[in-house]
Design a protein around this nucleic acid. Structure first.
Ligand SMILES: [Mn+2]
Ligand SMILES: [Mn+2]
Ligand SMILES: [Mn+2]
Ligand SMILES: [Mn+2]
Lengths: 140, 140
DNA sequence: CCAAATTTGTAGCCAAAGCTACATTTCGCT
DNA sequence: AGCGAAATGTAGCTTTGGCTACAAATTTGG
């Protein structure tokens, strides 16, 4: 083979890392949402909203706790640490921008919401900045 | 909890399915690229370009064969079936549209290429259609 | 206040996708 | 032709993220 394009390898590597972070991001955002609505996030509610069995949610929460993003006691709700809440804010903001960008280029509301749930995790900070700039230009 | 928004669940489910397809899509596209360049795709080249160890590529190819997307004999190159080639075409086309859309809204070339590698797998056919329409409008 | 329903925890299974280490085959070159 | 290098295969380990089944705790309604 000839030389291998380093940009391409980097792209695949980036996609893999993003995929690895995706679960964490979605759980943290959801816990934050539930906390805002009900004051706390219950395992059952997390599982229901994410569409998984409850042991799957339990396992994910265990990882969040291990990573210092959440805390919880047995049979009680799950709460975000400061770090977790900060991440949630970032993720929520990015989610909104991605949906807005999709809407702005003509993607139907419903579809935009569905696709954004996956796309968001692969939008880098530089792409996000470009999206925001575009939306500002368009709004003015 | 109150009722659970079915759209949201659907979004997470869709993202999970897309993530599951992502590997297949990238491998098939890459095999097609290598076939165009060298006449065949070797395991070593696949591994090098995707940035993984060679047994990882071997395992992925085994799955493609299982799924009827590729064929190969021991110690020889990997080739796509008709179905595999068709998928490769679709994936390649979508990849190009995603990069073009990102560029069109102001994402720098290099960044667009990196992010597209992950984003592409979460772009549904309806969103793709919207992207194409937008690009056509903008070009005219 | 207690029994039933709900929620949560835990055990253990599976598949996917990565890795290293080592065996085998093929290729390139003298 | 044969030897060393390169490519490929294979074994086996790890982590992650799903799942079901069942046990234990908590909450609720009569
Ligand atoms: Mn998401
Ligand atoms: Mn989201
Ligand atoms: Mn890709
Ligand atoms: Mn691609």
């Amino acid at each position: 083979m000839t030389e291998t394009d380093p940009t391409q390898i980097k792209g695949f590597d980036r996609a893999r890392q993003a995929a690895a972070r995706a679960l964490t991001e979605d759980y943290v955002e959801m816990i934050s949402d539930l906390a805002a609505e009900f004051g706390e996030a219950r395992i059952t509610d997390l599982a229901a909203r994410l569409g998984v069995a409850h042991p799957t949610a339990t396992k994910a929460v265990a990882r969040l706790k291990r990573e210092g993003l959440a805390i919880s006691r047995p049979y009680r709700g799950v709460f975000l640490t400061e770090e977790g809440e900060a991440l949630a804010e970032t993720v929520r903001a990015r989610h909104r921008v991605v949906v807005a960008l999709l809407r702005a280029v003509g993607v139907p509301e419903e579809v935009a919401e569905l696709d954004a749930e996956g796309i968001e995790h692969h939008v880098s900070s530089r792409t996000l900045a470009a999206f925001e700039a575009y939306l500002n230009r368009k709004t003015d």
